[in-house]
Each structure stands twice: as structure tokens, then as C-alpha cells.
Amino acid sequence: MEQGLSNALNVLIVGMATVFMILWLVVIIGNLIIRVTNKYWTDEDLKKSAPKSNHPSASKGAVAAIIAAVEIVTNGRGKVTKITKQ
């Protein structure tokens, strides 16, 4: 019984240490990926490739919604190149 409890105590210590270490790694990895993408692949890069609307009143949100809708409907095959008002 004592041997079993000693094992269980070891499992508690090793287990909690491992869980904390992995979630610490999650924090490190997350921060690292955020820094790298912020430096080398910002949203501006994406915006450059985004289509421009000829209509001045079209908001960024509306353009984003149109792009998202076209992507979903065409399963990613369609691309919005130009938005004009009829």
C-alpha cells in the first residue's frame, strides 16, 4: 500500500510538472509564432493582394464579407478581382 501511495505521489508530481511544462511551451510557441508572423507576414501583405472596390462607400467589412461569401460558395476556387456597383 505504501509503495502504491508513493507511486501515486510520484505520478502527481511528474504529472503536474509535465502539464505545466507543456502549457508553458504552448505560451512560448504561441508567442514565437505571433512574433514571427508579425515580422514576416503581417496583414498588410494580405491587404496588398485583396481586391479594391471602385465604389468609395464600400466599407472594408463589406469587401471582406463579399470575399468570404465567394470563397465559401465556390469552395475556394473563385477569387474576387473587382467590385463595382451596378
Binding site: 507543456i22 511551451l25 510557441i29 509564432i33 508572423t37 508579425n38 507576414w41 503581417t42 498588410e44 501583405d45
Partner: peptide
């Protein structure tokens, strides 16, 4: 830090995390 490109972060995160874990 502000996240400037959340989509890319969300794609890279599971790949890297899975490898490390």
C-alpha cells in the same frame, strides 16, 4: 504584442504545437 495576422498564426500553431508535444 498585438497579433497582426491571426489567420496565419492559427494555421501554424497546431502544426508546431503538435510536433513539440
Amino acid at each position: 504584442h498585438q497579433i497582426k495576422n491571426i489567420k496565419t498564426v492559427k494555421i501554424v500553431f497546431p502544426i508546431v504545437l503538435g510536433t513539440v508535444v
